[in-house]
Design a protein around this nucleic acid. Structure first.
Ligand SMILES: [Mn+2]
Ligand SMILES: [Mn+2]
Ligand SMILES: [Zn+2]
Ligand SMILES: [Zn+2]
Lengths: 145, 145
DNA sequence: CTGACTAATGCAACAACTTGCAAGAGCGAG
DNA sequence: CTCGCTCTTGCAAGTTGTTGCATTAGTCAG
């Protein structure tokens, strides 16, 4: 099954109609293998189909997020970031000092969610968390100053 | 010391100049004792001084946030919320199903931050976290359906 | 294959911020 | 008190994201 056919099947499974705009948005995110801003997605989509409207892309991103096919995340700075949700879940540690965005596996975050469930009966939905703070490198530099 | 004098002293301590716009913004948040949107702050400020410009309020909110005098939080829906950071830190559990916003004490969140520090040397800065998910009430209703 | 139902789209207006620049106003030195 | 440095503000324009409405186009029953 081609990449495009996979995307179409994924769309159908999530209850969406298969339209060229939605396929283009999905493909943009799958091939980027990175966080993309809405503006970047619009740009990429328009390389193939210049007529696609901005608001369609915004709406599509919202729909895909609601269907849990992509993550929508606010890092401290700049635009909202979207990412295709592949294999296993991950999160990010964002340094307020140097701007580094490191990856964080789901283990610790899942443990945190577990705690919330036990103590508050709250079922946390943490798909792609951005934790702000100061990275190890910057923390050491500040300490040894 | 009056409420207004306290606010002025707080501003000076944080390295700000004491201006009427900044005092009005601080007072709005201190008296609300709740989360306020930027729009609500603008509205409140203008009840006293109708001439204050919107962008001044936005800039002031950003400055107060940088000085850690107020929190800036994105609950899943609606505008960004600002809150005066009083006595002890707290967080929120936000239900995606019924919209309830419950309070969460700092204990569990601090434990999470502690974990990140031990395992990654990352000093997390979680002042006022909004954890999305499903509250106990909604989770039970769904389970017993 | 056809038709009808309804989701998806384009468009334009709107809402929620953000930014560059020039004018105004705190505040500390003298 | 006065001066001057620099932070702060107003204004206007720009960005990013949202929404109502009329039109288009997937999908599925028949
Ligand atoms: Mn990611
Ligand atoms: Mn709060
Ligand atoms: Zn860093
Ligand atoms: Zn609920």
């Amino acid at each position: 099954m081609s990449c495009r056919e996979e995307s179409a099947a994924t769309l159908r499974r999530a209850g969406h109609r298969v339209t060229s705009a939605k396929l283009l948005v999905i493909e943009a995110l799958r091939h980027a293998e990175d966080h993309l801003s809405a503006t970047a997605v619009i740009e990429q989509v328009r390389r193939d189909s210049p007529h696609v409207n901005e608001s369609t892309v915004y709406r599509t991103l919202g729909a895909l997020r609601d269907s849990r096919l992509i993550s929508e995340t606010t890092f401290g700075h700049g635009e909202v970031a979207y990412e295709w949700l592949g294999e296993r879940p991950h999160h990010h540690l964002v340094c307020n000092s140097c701007g580094a965005v490191d990856e964080l596996s789901d283990e610790i975050v899942a443990g945190f969610a577990e705690q919330l469930s036990r103590t508050h009966g709250f079922v946390a939905d943490l798909q792609h968390l951005a934790v702000p703070g100061v990275c190890a490198k910057c923390a050491n530099e500040t300490a040894g100053r």
